[in-house]
């Protein structure tokens, strides 16, 4: 019994070390950018400055996690942005109404889970390619967001906006809470099967893992994270916007891939995806701070993403593919 536990622990730490090693280069780059940002903007080190920074980072971190879960399960989602928009408009229309903040938040989460699970069920049960299903889903979800709120509007109670996007680093605390939840999710039987279901569904199935359930649950969890990111964005802006999430689809894929999450499933770790979103977020902040014109943002973002993905090619570490 104790021998088995010891082997398990050794295996666990070996896996963790490997995941850390994969994310090391990225963490270095992100830390360098963070240091540059702190040098340019010393206010970052104050509570208020840190709060503002974590608020600009949190939505991107959430959608990157949402994307990473699906990619680890062996898929990819092009509906993340639409889901963020949907979460934002639901929050902005329900919270000021009879449902109240708690009811509105619950509605946002339930819709996220349900839509995500529906996408997952179509991909997994009907055997359609994830990229095409989520592409179609992005139209359906985006259309639903437009129906709920045809033009920017709605309202978020002011106290909620102050709480989530005020001068206190609530956003950072939320991120920590989400990471803890993710770790607990990985400890459940469904979560435990996530990596094996993505790496090799057939082998995982033969080994007795609940492959289909794990993959559908991954889509549901991803939908939940995306709509929650939408809720946060709505709280930030104080209102809902049916197309506010569009940019998140691309950025979520970029952050996850920067973080070493592979497209074939079963590769990469959430810490990588979060570090990737940190890098993107800091990069955008630094460029704003240096007064780059918006044009340069696009150009620099494109160059840096390709550079960061290509970097391992020049530092001698060959990927197995």
């Amino acid at each position: 019994m104790s021998a088995a536990a010891e082997t398990g622990a050794r295996l666990y730490f070996a896996v963790q070390r490997r995941r850390n090693r994969d994310a090391r280069g990225l963490l270095l780059v992100a830390a360098a950018f963070l240091a540059l940002y702190a040098y340019l903007f010393p206010g970052l080190l104050s509570v208020g400055g840190f709060a503002k920074f974590s608020q600009s980072w949190l939505p991107l971190a959430l959608v990157s996690m949402a994307q990473a879960i699906i990619m680890i399960a062996g898929g990819v989602s092009l509906a993340i942005g639409a889901m963020v928009s949907l979460g934002a408009v639901i929050a902005a229309t329900s919270m000021a109404g009879p449902l109240g903040v708690a009811g509105g938040a619950a509605l946002v989460m339930i819709v996220g889970l349900a839509v995500g699970a529906a996408c997952g069920a179509i991909v997994v049960r009907l055997g359609l390619p994830a990229i095409v299903v989520t592409l179609a889903a992005s139209f359906i979800v985006g259309g639903a967001a437009l129906l709920i709120l045809p033009r920017p509007g709605g309202a978020i109670p002011a106290w909620l906006s102050d709480l989530l996007a005020g001068d206190t680093p609530v956003a950072a605390a939320l991120l920590v809470a989400v990471v803890v939840l993710w770790k607990s999710y990985l400890a459940t039987p469904i979560g435990l099967s996530l990596y094996s279901a993505g790496e090799n569904p057939v082998a995982a199935y033969r080994a007795g893992a609940p492959v289909d359930a794990a993959r559908i649950a991954a889509y549901a969890a991803s939908g939940l994270l995306s709509t929650c990111a939408g809720l946060f964005v709505a709280a930030q802006t104080g209102s809902g916007d049916p197309v506010i999430g569009e940019a998140f689809t691309l950025n979520s894929i970029a952050a996850a891939v920067l973080g070493g999450v592979g497209f074939l499933g079963g590769r990469g770790a959430m810490r990588g995806a979060i570090a990737g979103s940190l890098l993107l977020s800091v990069m955008i902040n630094v460029m704003y701070f240096l007064g780059f014109p918006p044009v340069a943002h696009y150009i620099a973002q494109g160059l840096i993403i390709v550079g960061a993905v290509a970097l391992p090619q020049f530092t001698g570490r060959r990927s197995g593919a």
């Binding site: 691309l250 943002h297 696009y298 150009i299 973002q301 494109g302 993403i305």
Partner: peptide, 12 residues
């Protein structure tokens, strides 16, 4: 990633 980054670049 490559083509997304290219799209972002071209947008700018």
């Amino acid at each position: 990633i490559m083509t997304l980054a290219m799209a972002t670049f071209l947008q700018g």
